[in-house]
Simulated assay, not measured.
Amino acid sequence: MTFSAIRPDEATPFRIIFVCTGNICRSPMAEITLRDLVTRSGLGRLIFTSSAGTGDWHVGEQADARTVAALKRQGYDGSHHRARQFDPVWFADYDLVVVLDRTQERILRNWAVSDRDRSKVRLLLSFDQEQASLHDVPDPYYSDDALFDSVLGMIEKANLALFAQLEPAIRQGVR
């Protein structure tokens, strides 16, 4: 996916949602790290980040404690996150729906009611040439702190690549 000039404004920013399984590990990491990049670039009012899960079993819960800890080790604050489930009506509200693995990709493309909505669904690693062949960001839920740290590193790297593609289009559209 390439981005041409995007013309967001403070009232209608470019909206990105990250989606994983339960919205307590990978998608909060992606939301928080991209938000940090966007804020540091000065585009915080023009790009909105959010996250959700395909499942409903963690709705209302905080991010997994290991997620919060991994984020904190890298200087991010994940303490305010609350899990929620993706609602298919949200396709209309988002410009880009970034999924963390092919399972969410299949689910969301099945939930989409139009080709336009299906075209918004993209794998996070697809934005990073070096990681694209991996396709999936591993789910660290049943693992240890080391995998949480590794997954966060993958997400940060992929978000840098996503932002590198998105930022020029946003800046060009702001003129």
Rank of each mutant, 00 (worst) to 15 (best):
M1E: 02
D9N: 14
E10H: 10
I17K: 05
F18L: 06
C20F: 05
N23I: 12
S27T: 11
M29W: 03
E31T: 05
I32S: 06
L34S: 05
R35V: 00
L43V: 03
T49P: 00
S50E: 10
S50V: 00
S50Y: 07
S51P: 02
G53N: 02
G55E: 05
D56T: 11
V68P: 01
Q74C: 04
Q74A: 12
G75A: 03
Y76M: 04
Y76F: 15
Y76N: 02
S79A: 11
A83N: 00
R84E: 02
F86D: 02
D87H: 11
V97A: 08
N110M: 14
N110I: 08
A112E: 12
S114Y: 11
D115A: 15
D115N: 15
D115K: 15
D115Q: 15
R116Y: 11
D117H: 14
D117W: 08
R122H: 15
L123T: 09
L125I: 12
F127C: 11
Q129S: 15
E130R: 14
D136P: 07
V137H: 03
P140F: 06
Y142W: 11
S143M: 10
D145A: 15
D145P: 04
F148Y: 15
L152D: 09
L152T: 10
G153W: 11
A158Y: 07
L162E: 08
Q165T: 07
I170T: 09
R175M: 11
